[in-house]
């Protein structure tokens, strides 16, 4: 290891462990402590702020003190490997699921998952939306083999709690005190239409269809999936979903 690499390792260790390293710096005593403290404090403050930016509603749900403690614990276990601080916090939901003692209620794991998905949709790849006109103009003989492509920002989350009301209330009002979340296994759709993020729940059939479309299923494949659920008119049901998805900006042009 070069001298420079060794110096940087020692400095970094001091920052990560919040522990001044002796012998590296020109100053000693109080002067060194105050200088080094700037780096030690700035590191935690900056990464905590980044986590707050990515999870603003979770931060409101937990309050400043509990969120800062959580950020500290997460940072100790998941220091950033990212060039851009925007991606810091990508593993927070998994971290919380494995360490529920950081949360007053297990539903907040789902809230973290929802927030990260919103953040991901916010700057996901752009797409030109499929319009009603293109759907209407599609010749009948082309429908069975036609692939309909979801927008790149679409994410389907399997949640176990009804956390959407918490998100909505706290997003609108930092001081909101909502009801305790109820268990409710469901799929939440999150996507971006034009520049704005949207979300809503989906039933099992609709979620299965959208997941199939992300695996490049055709319209005929979708009809088969619907028929398997006992629907006597799968083509009509599939067409109904398509109309709804186009209206909501869920489908992209090829």
């Amino acid at each position: 290891m070069s001298t420079l690499a060794a110096l940087q390792e020692r400095f970094q260790k001091a920052v990560l462990l919040d522990d001044p390293t002796p012998g590296l710096f020109a100053a000693e005593g109080e002067e060194l402590e105050s200088g080094l403290a700037v780096y030690l404090q700035a590191y935690r403050a900056r990464l905590t702020a980044a986590l707050r930016d990515n999870y603003p509603v979770l931060q409101r749900a937990l309050g400043d003190e509990a969120f800062d403690l959580l950020a500290r614990a997460y940072l100790d276990e998941h220091p950033s490997h990212f060039r851009s601080i925007r991606w810091f916090g990508d593993s927070l939901a998994e971290f919380l699921a494995a360490a529920p003692e950081h949360l007053p209620h297990p539903a907040l794991v789902d809230l973290a998952r929802m927030e990260w998905a919103m953040r991901t949709a916010f700057d996901a790849a752009d797409a030109t939306l499929l319009g009603v006109g293109e759907l209407v103009a599609l010749p009948p003989e082309e429908w069975p083999q036609r692939h309909f492509k979801p927008v790149p920002s679409l994410q389907l989350l399997d949640l176990t709690w009804r956390v959407e009301p918490i998100w909505k209330d706290l997003n609108a009002d930092a001081e909101a005190i909502g009801d305790e979340p109820l268990p409710w296994p469901h799929v939440l759709l999150i996507w971006r239409s034009d520049l704005d993020c949207r979300w809503r729940s989906a039933d099992a059939c609709e979620a299965a269809l959208l997941r199939a479309l992300t695996r490049v299923a055709s319209f005929a494949d979708c009809c088969t999936l619907i028929a398997e659920s006992g629907d006597p008119e799968p083509a009509q049901t599939a067409a109904g979903f398509l109309q709804c998805w186009v209206a909501e900006g869920l489908l992209a042009q090829d």
Binding site: F11, Q12, L16, Y39, R83
Partner: peptide, 25 residues
């Protein structure tokens, strides 16, 4: 400056030692 080592990013602008070795680096 440098921002981290061993694949980590401290997201800070850390000073270099002002040495001939740093210049060569």
């Amino acid at each position: 400056c440098w921002t981290g080592t061993s694949s980590l990013n401290l997201h800070d602008l850390l000073p270099l030692p002002y040495t001939e070795a740093s210049l060569e680096h």
